[in-house]
Amino acid sequence: MTIYVRLEENRLDPREELGALIDQAAGDGAIVSFVGIVRPTSGDSDQLEKLVLEHHPTLTGQSLEEIAVAAAQRFDVSHVRVVHRCGEVQAGEPIVFAGAASPHRRAAFEAADYLMDRLKTEAVLWKREEGAAGTKWIEPTETDYRERGRWE
């Protein structure tokens, strides 16, 4: 079992992250990964230039770690990998990679789904959109909280 977590200030290449997970997962039967990309428009359909993710010096890393460990304990997975961007992320760039490897596919699907539902609502990051319409802070939506609630 391995749990890999990284808060990345500069560059997130999902191909490299998936490659690393595949290399680790020799002997497993399934790998599921999710890549989140910054959309070019905001929730109000305005043109979005970038997202800015602020983080806490200790709590952000702790929260990512705690979520990854919980996924590893809850599902029959062999490897969990979470990489989250912080700082400025331009539209079109990856913002998060969440992946899991397991002997059978269901656990890997569920672990990736669980990771994202918790990251959306509990990762200690503060996200704001910056674009033509100005600055807007982004908080989890009712849907995000409802989807997180599926795992209670």
Binding site: H56, H84, M116, L119, L125, W126, W137, I138
Partner: peptide
């Protein structure tokens, strides 16, 4: 004391 506004990742 630190006050943390509502958080959101992903």
């Amino acid at each position: 004391v630190e006050f943390l506004a509502p958080v959101s990742g992903g």
